[in-house]
Write a protein that binds this DNA or RNA. Structure first.
Lengths: 249, 249
DNA sequence: CCAGAAGCGGAGGGCATCTCTGCGGTTCGA
DNA sequence: TCGAACCGCAGAGATGCCCTCCGCTTCTGG
């Protein structure tokens, strides 16, 4: 408390955070153009390292990785970390600012696919793949806990796209009519849950369950498409359970 | 360290824990018969309260609830809690000792169902329902972190039953042939993930996705069974994301 | 080449959480 | 009625995490 109060006569926290936020995020966006006062070369190199290390750490372990761990992976001291990104939240913003927007773009792309059904399936496949590859992204998609303005806006943008993907496939007669746009989101949630569980022993096995669900979604009930990926062996299941991760994560 | 060493000349921890374990768990099982030295009436009443409060707490919040929370719900002091159950782990054992065994029994029952396919579907439905109703049970099923001997044994018992359920439905020609026993476990994992997410706004909506998956599992591809439960509204999704729970839990 | 500004790293402060204990006072039951 | 058993709670002790402080190092403009 005391040390923080000592920082400025303003005393209040929120304004200070806002200043820092502008300084940090907008600077990042405009520095290449304005070049107001470029970072010293070593500092810039460390900033890059932190960004890279954090990206890897968030992808592998989710947004809960500690700042110490990020600094360690980046090969810098914790002090250096906090000089560049005065708050962990700021770093998350800088890193993921465009990632969710990219998911929306993917949806738009799939909306333009020639075959509406294949467009929907492609979206499910690729959107899930991205979230499986990056746990941080998944957490950002499914929780508002960390998002700031920009990220929240992208989230809002994506809901209607789900609905459009669904309706288009239904109009084409390929998708069962009782599916809703929100189901698309929850299907991704289901699949990432499997992926989180099996990641260490069979990282691709979630695709097996995507195929299963997709077969449940289509109206053309001719013949089931064969399941990709081998099923897990019983031993693999116990192996996964053995490594003590926080429950359910 | 010091206070614990002071407790006994034996000094070692493990033996002491084992003693307490016997005293606590086997006493519970045999007291009604042997009645060696019954608890005082108030003590017995509190023990019951703790068991009940803990059952409710574990069911709602998972095995990570704090001992303080359990004591609070039981309406007893934390000291009383620790007199009855010297370790949180012991309480978990006492409470869940038979729960996983019951899941195995359910599987055996479904194996005896007249229609193999309906037996499999019934198992998926009911086993998932139990885990949705009790988060603690789910965590115990999918992680060895908390289990002791008895619980581990029940877990081993259940794997072959999955396989039998699957083979029997396949032999009857109702289940697609490329499904494996382990898939049954992972399907439950998927569904409980949905349930964990939607629990607060639409606790039954996981059944929608069970229906979807079941339609993907069957070989009879005549017509999809209609999805039960209304789809979530877009607003419900954002509502769930808003309440800040630990990520992914 | 050098002075001093900018940056570096990591020990540790502060805080929150959680499990479990010590102990003064209370309640039960023979 | 008396003593053993029991109660509850304040808090010890452990851990984990975010973030700061500050002595030392590295860069860079003149």
């Amino acid at each position: 408390m005391t040390s923080r109060d000592r920082l400025g006569t303003s005393g209040r926290e929120a304004p200070r955070r806002a200043d820092v936020y502008d300084q940090c995020v907008t600077e990042q966006a405009t520095r290449a153009v304005a070049a107001k006062r470029p970072l010293r070369r070593d500092a810039e190199r460390n900033r890059r390292r932190i960004l890279e290390g954090a990206a890897a750490a968030f992808a592998e372990q989710g947004l809960d990785v500690t700042t110490d761990e990020i600094a360690r992976r980046a090969g810098v001291g914790i002090g250096t970390f906090y000089r560049r990104f005065p708050t962990k939240e700021l770093l998350i913003d800088a890193l993921f600012e465009d990632r969710i927007g990219k998911l929306a773009e993917l949806a738009e792309e799939c909306l333009r696919a020639e075959d509406p059904w294949l467009g929907l399936v492609a979206f499910l496949d690729q959107a899930t793949a991205r979230q499986v590859a990056d746990r941080g992204l998944k957490e950002l998609v499914f929780s508002t806990a960390h998002g700031r303005a920009r990220i929240a806006a992208d989230r809002d943008r994506i809901g209607p796209l789900f609905m459009a993907l669904v309706e288009r496939a239904q109009d084409a007669g390929a998708l069962r009519p009782d599916v809703a746009g929100t189901d698309v989101a929850l299907i991704q949630l289901m699949l990432t849950a499997v992926a989180d569980f099996t990641r260490d022993v069979a990282p691709e096995s979630w695709r097996r369950f995507l195929a299963l669900v997709v077969d449940g979604l289509r109206t053309d009930r001719a013949a089931p498409s064969p399941l990709p990926q081998p099923a897990l062996a019983p031993g693999q299941i116990t192996q996964v359970m053995a490594c003590d991760r926080p429950h359910g994560r």
